[in-house]
Simulated scan of single mutants.
Amino acid sequence: MSSVESISMRSEEFRLGKPPRPSHPGGLPVLLSMELRKLKGSSFWWMALGMIALVSSWSGLAFMKRAESSNPTTRTVALAQGEIFQTVGLLAPILAALLTSRLAVMESSERMDLKWLSLGQSPIGMFLAKLVVAGCALTLCFVIPLTWIPLTASAQGFHLEGSLAEYILLPALIACFSSMAVTAIQLALSLTIERQAIGLGLGVIAGLIGTGLGPMSMPGLGWFFPAGISSATSPFLFSASSDGFARMTLAANPWPKVLTSLLACIIWSGISAFIVKVKESDR
């Protein structure tokens, strides 16, 4: 039997409501490989590269302004790193909405979802494959500047309290888990709601709320939605110095915050996968 006939038979089985037979063993790695092949040469990657360039450029301009200051209180690695970390709560939901919306549009316009289901792939596996691709792309937007900013600041003589490795690793890990959680819920919205503008609008609102929790001294509210995870688990402590300038320091024991951000990422990813599963079962 040829591959064309096999696909045709399984598509017919899916149309008649028969349970599809698995034809591509391997689970998530196979689905991930399929997802990457499908996106080969698509505008998704150009969109992701544009987002990485945008966040890195903004981070570079903010750091250049910080480096021009002659006040030693403001020339600290923690303050330079903390400014970039605050952009996670604002930009992650918006950028995630754009990326996941693109994935959903490609999936529905080319009817790829029906094809993979007819080949015996589960909706949860398809969701996880998309989550890995979009989540990694979004994570790079923040991990890249969160990595080079402390290195550059340290090289230019910015004041450093503690280990440089912690300044790089801790914010990057929390940004990664927060980005994955935000991507999961935005992906669920994009796959279950036909109007993609709704997901984008919710992403903008979530970003505005998420970035405002810290200044409003209510970071604990961030546990109630993915965009607020970075505020709730921020490893930086904010205060004002005697001369009125802002001051940031790394928390004494920030590793519990890293673990709780990982737990929150797992919980929100599970909730998102459940939403997608319920939606697919109602079809």
Results as ranks from 00 to 15, higher is better:
2 S>L: 05
5 E>I: 06
9 M>E: 15
9 M>P: 05
10 R>Q: 15
11 S>Y: 11
11 S>K: 14
11 S>V: 13
15 R>V: 07
16 L>R: 14
18 K>P: 00
18 K>C: 06
19 P>M: 06
22 P>K: 11
26 G>M: 05
28 L>P: 06
29 P>A: 07
30 V>A: 13
31 L>S: 12
34 M>F: 10
35 E>V: 04
38 K>R: 11
39 L>F: 02
40 K>T: 09
42 S>C: 07
44 F>W: 03
44 F>T: 00
45 W>I: 11
46 W>M: 13
48 A>F: 02
49 L>K: 12
50 G>V: 06
53 A>N: 11
57 S>C: 13
63 F>H: 04
64 M>S: 11
66 R>Y: 00
68 E>W: 08
70 S>G: 15
71 N>A: 11
72 P>R: 05
73 T>L: 10
76 T>K: 08
79 L>V: 05
81 Q>D: 10
81 Q>W: 06
83 E>K: 12
94 I>L: 10
96 A>S: 15
97 A>L: 06
98 L>I: 15
100 T>M: 01
100 T>G: 00
102 R>Y: 15
103 L>R: 01
106 M>W: 03
107 E>G: 04
107 E>V: 02
108 S>H: 13
112 M>K: 03
116 W>P: 00
118 S>W: 00
119 L>Q: 11
133 V>Y: 01
135 G>R: 01
136 C>S: 14
136 C>E: 00
138 L>V: 00
138 L>G: 01
138 L>T: 00
140 L>K: 03
143 V>M: 09
144 I>N: 05
145 P>S: 10
146 L>R: 11
148 W>T: 08
149 I>T: 13
152 T>W: 09
155 A>M: 11
156 Q>C: 06
157 G>Q: 04
160 L>F: 03
160 L>W: 04
161 E>T: 13
162 G>I: 07
164 L>D: 09
167 Y>E: 10
167 Y>L: 09
169 L>M: 11
174 I>H: 01
176 C>P: 01
178 S>G: 14
178 S>Q: 03
178 S>R: 02
181 A>D: 01
182 V>P: 00
186 Q>M: 15
188 A>L: 07
189 L>Y: 04
190 S>K: 01
192 T>W: 09
193 I>M: 12
194 E>T: 12
196 Q>A: 10
196 Q>R: 14
197 A>H: 13
198 I>N: 04
201 G>S: 10
202 L>S: 09
202 L>P: 11
204 V>L: 14
206 A>Q: 01
208 L>F: 12
209 I>S: 02
209 I>G: 01
213 L>I: 05
214 G>M: 11
214 G>D: 08
218 M>S: 09
219 P>I: 07
221 L>A: 13
224 F>P: 09
227 A>G: 10
228 G>D: 08
229 I>Q: 01
230 S>Y: 02
230 S>Q: 08
230 S>N: 09
233 T>R: 15
234 S>I: 05
241 S>F: 10
244 G>H: 08
245 F>S: 15
254 P>G: 06
254 P>I: 04
256 P>E: 14
261 S>Y: 02
262 L>P: 06
262 L>F: 14
262 L>K: 04
263 L>T: 13
265 C>K: 02
268 W>F: 15
269 S>Q: 00
270 G>R: 02
272 S>Y: 02
273 A>G: 14
275 I>R: 07
276 V>A: 03
277 K>L: 10
279 K>R: 15
281 S>Y: 05
281 S>T: 07
